[in-house]
Amino acid sequence: MTDLAPLRALLDHHVVGHDEVKTALLLALVTREHIYVEGPPGTAKTRLAEVAAKGSELDFFFYQLHRDTRLAELVGDIVLERRRVKTEAADSDGAGEAERIHQRIEPGGLLTAEIAVLDDISRAPGEALNVLLRILNERRFGAEPIPLMAAIATGNPMDDEYYNEPLDPANLDRFALQLRVTGLIQSGAEEARTLIDRFAAGSVVEQPDPEAVTDRATLDALNQRMYEVEVGPVVRAALLDILRTLVLEFECNETNSLLTDRTFLVKAIKILRGAALLAGRTAVELADLAALSWMTTFRVPAEAHEALPRIIGRVNRQVRAV
């Protein structure tokens, strides 16, 4: 197993079920990508992020977005710097003084966090999110790099009734990993029983304060090792075949999909490497392509997303046959 096994165990200890979200969360930490998790309230989204942050001694920032969210609330305080300056001598108005006022932002919140949870991102006005998401994307604010490793955004189902304006699809593209979760009880999952049993036994810590089981240095080292994972020509050809199928057979285009080069040609390579690394390998294998379905959730039409495992299987068989 990998260096992240203790962290995974910690997540399992504090949160029942949600296997996919846990794996995706670890993948996000290794690859330094952001996750968008869509699902109803009370599905342990925030708790998972919090446990992961504490378990790896990372600075944690939580923000509940609302329909009036302003940038300053997320990135720190607006500071006015005032400096006295001499007035120009040639002024006819006589003696005086002048003050130069400079407005800047004192970094805080997202700019100083290593893990951020942005709750209910779909409630914030799409337009206001633009700068926030750009920060997430570039991991820089102005010229300054920020220490953020991964942001976990949560949202309500993409439905007209929940908010005024839909989340701008370009904004959603900033989250490489995208998952849809359902409550254990609502979906009738097996773990629902475990969950209830745990509460009945009183063995649930309401405010978990887990020990650190790993640290930033370990995560940084993993991120460096990710780049050593080999992505051979066979896997690349398979990836391209899958993308070609989405474009040509499922007619994914700019109108109905977000099949962006940034995500599927650049970030996909990272995600595949991360998936191989988490599986304890040094080269990406065809099996790792399954991780692609965490990228397509909200980027391609539902029928294409649902068909993805089938597409991957078919392409794998073809590639193996060659």
Partner: peptide, 10 residues
Amino acid sequence: GDVLLSRRRH
């Protein structure tokens, strides 16, 4: 750019 606020007694 920045604001320059001048105050002059006159």
